[in-house]
Write a protein that binds this DNA or RNA. Structure first.
Length: 193
DNA sequence: TGGATGATCGCA
DNA sequence: GCGATCATCCAG
């Protein structure tokens, strides 16, 4: 069962719009018969050929191929040889675009997150950390966000107080540093760095 | 502030 | 093949 803030057409829209509208929605994961969730509080948009910082800038490669595929699919990659990053593919088939999930507020499954992280706080306030806390790795690459099967991944409608969506420059980039493609809930206490 | 750590990509 | 690069995190 998949609930979307604006119905089934939530994905397949311009990447920047999806990145903003994901703030306040809930990421769900099911693995080993166990469900975990977190409220999405920080995202970054990555576009296609026009965005030098995007993996898709030079066209489709084996790594970023799913960015060019159908929307509402997970794009998971390994960065710095250490951490995984979770993205949602946004644009219609043939157009590259994805949204990096940078931080969530833990909801369900906090105990398991704390066990995996070896601490009680700062469990999911960063793209690498939230993947580790939720148990997401490259095996999840290409997974549809439809909540079926196992492991499963999906998004449900906004929860909690209405977010105060703020727009800033993306973090940690060497290219295309200026554009304001980062979105976060200014009221959240679970943002990265 | 810099080191860990490995897949990926562009060029030879 | 080989080396530069990389959307990170944490110890010191």
């Amino acid at each position: 069962m998949v609930l979307m803030p604006d119905g089934l057409d939530f994905f397949g829209r311009p990447t920047l719009a999806v990145a903003a509208d994901l703030i306040g929605t809930v990421l769900h994961v099911r693995q080993d018969g166990r469900e975990m969730s977190g409220r999405i509080v920080e995202t970054e948009a990555y576009l296609g050929a026009e965005d030098p910082a995007s993996h898709a800038a030079a066209g489709p490669t084996s790594r970023c191929a799913v960015m060019f595929g159908p929307p509402a699919v997970a794009y998971v990659y390994l960065i710095y040889g250490v951490h995984h990053g979770l993205n949602f593919v946004t644009e219609p088939f043939g157009n590259a675009g994805a949204v990096l999930i940078r931080a969530v507020e833990p909801l369900c499954g906090r105990d398991l997150m704390a066990k995996r992280m070896g601490r009680e706080r700062d469990l999911t306030n960063g793209p690498g950390k939230l993947c580790r806390a939720f148990g997401i790795d490259r095996r999840w690459n290409g997974l549809a966000l439809n909540g079926s099967g196992e492991p499963a991944l999906w998004v449900s409608a906004r929860t909690g107080d209405a977010p105060r969506v703020e727009t800033t420059a993306r973090i940690g980039l060497r290219k295309a540093v200026a554009v304001p493609y980062r979105f976060c809930d200014g009221n959240s206490t679970h943002l990265s760095r």
